[in-house]
Design a protein around this nucleic acid. Structure first.
Lengths: 168, 168
DNA sequence: ATATTCTTGACAAGAACAGTAGGTTATTTT
DNA sequence: AAAATAACCTACTGTTCTTGTCAAGAATAT
């Protein structure tokens, strides 16, 4: 897992899309202005996002990008993985023989930490981010959401509470 | 928060130090061999770690670096922050006026996510990493640790269980 | 048809970053 | 005193990031 400004830009842009996507495709020129990211860079990033099937494109006037799946199915980890492609192994690779036990030790420790970071980011979806924001704007909705939490806890959606708690 | 190979190297090296630090200072040449990180690079990283008071140096033959505080007082976040210095603001800065509400929204969403990542890494100390490793080598110790967990839960050490659970 | 909007791709240049190489200074041992 | 060890510092190279520019394809509007 790698976390850099590149990934941040991509996530930021995707949130922008999620918030504006109701009325059809969103043009990158608008995202560029609103988020202060160069259009050129956004084009490159969305090329990768498209090739990873996270967004779909519509060309021509009125065109732009749409999020390809439901918001709940796009995690922050998906986005970062798409733009930071070289998700290569941990040098030692896990399967390769390390120089000695001690080296394996530290590698494994890092790998574990890494995996946990990844799991965390994989557990946060665009839906989580967006609905949290809407709660803030419309406080009345909070109670409704609280009910949803209770429901999903009873019905076995065990991850839901943690996800939202994280954003509280 | 930024997560790159640089931070990984620094954490790896610090774990190495933690595991070998009993018999006085540890020389970087050894860390370099064991962890497969170039000596030059390690020197740079430890310059930063020293300036952030995470390690102390001893020059001359038999010299090297020691961890400056107790292992429990050094978190992974401390290490990463030390080497990835430019922990600068989120472009918008939080206090600066954003272009419009929408921009602030996405910035805030990212900032929240970011803070959560940071909190997580701040909750994992070198002590956690090292003691977990020792558990693996000596499985008999696990039950002892389990008792410690129960104790600290009763005595109000609420973070302890989560930290360790994370590494399980 | 023509012009406009917007994606798509390629290339290039500058800035920032990652990692390496070499020399200098402090401390210990011989 | 001399040699060896190991931290310290500066300069350098290569890669990645980020922006800019040009051109071309696709769909829409006039």
């Amino acid at each position: 897992m790698r976390l850099t400004t590149k990934g941040r830009f991509a996530v930021t842009a995707m949130i922008d899309l999620a918030l504006r996507g109701d009325g059809g495709p969103v043009a990158l020129a608008g995202v560029s202005e609103r988020q202060g990211i160069s259009l050129s860079y956004l084009e490159q990033l969305f090329g990768k996002l498209r090739r990873h099937r996270l967004v779909e494109s519509v060309r021509g006037p009125g065109g732009g990008y749409c999020i390809a799946r439901s918001l709940a199915e796009v995690s922050v980890a998906d986005i970062i993985r798409a733009v930071d492609e070289p998700l290569d192994a941990t040098q030692c690779g896990g399967r390769e023989n390390c120089q000695d036990e001690h080296r394996c030790m530290t590698h494994e420790l890092w790998a574990t930490l890494n995996a946990k970071m990844y799991d965390y980011l994989a557990s946060v979806s665009l839906q989580d981010l967006v609905s949290r924001q809407k709660d803030k704007q419309n406080p009345a909705a909070v109670t409704v959401l609280a009910d949803q939490r209770r429901e999903s806890n009873q019905s076995g959606g065990r991850a839901s509470r943690d996800k939202l708690a994280v954003l509280a």
